[in-house]
Amino acid sequence: MRKIAIPITRDNQIESHFGRSKFYEIYLFSSNNEILDIQLLETQHKRACKSDIFNELASKGVSCLLSENIGDKAYHKFNEAGIQVIRGCSGDSSDVILKYVENQISDRGSNCVKPHKSHSNHSCHN
């Protein structure tokens, strides 16, 4: 079995930048890639990247995070916690998780390169 986490907005869209994440869906999969359970984790942190969400998700058994944009520090903190990060995911979380299970999603291979207050103030390298 494996667990995959997705940072989401209140309307189940993947959060455009990990640092703003307050909600996470955590999917539990069987060895046959069947969804066994979905949990919603709500954090009390204003900025996910400055929280201990990395270790919190690792303690829940999460092995992979599907994210749209993520900074270098957060990316490395997830790796240190033993969680693989797949970058470049966007859209409805249920659609993305199904594409991931069908091997239709791959990591875009780059992180956001500078801190920001609004994601529209810079371009993430895709």
Rank of each mutant, 00 (worst) to 15 (best):
S106P: 15
S67V: 05
G88W: 04
G82K: 02
R10I: 06
Y75N: 15
K22G: 07
N126Y: 11
R2M: 14
S21L: 02
D92V: 11
S118L: 10
S67I: 12
N12A: 04
G19Q: 14
I70S: 09
R47I: 15
R108S: 13
H116N: 05
G91S: 01
F78P: 11
L40Q: 01
A58T: 00
D107M: 10
K99P: 02
I83S: 04
K114F: 15
H45D: 09
M1N: 11
S118G: 12
E34W: 06
S90D: 14
H45A: 07
C124P: 05
N121T: 10
S110F: 15
C112G: 11
G91W: 00
S118W: 14
S106L: 11
L41H: 00
S123F: 13
V113N: 11
G88N: 05
L98F: 06
K99N: 13
G82D: 13
L65M: 02
H116W: 02
F29R: 08
H119P: 10
A58D: 02
T43F: 02
G19S: 06
H119I: 15
N55H: 03
I70E: 13
D92N: 15
I53H: 03
G19I: 05
S106I: 10
P115R: 04
H116T: 06
S63A: 09
N55C: 02
K73H: 12
Q84D: 15
N79M: 12
L98W: 08
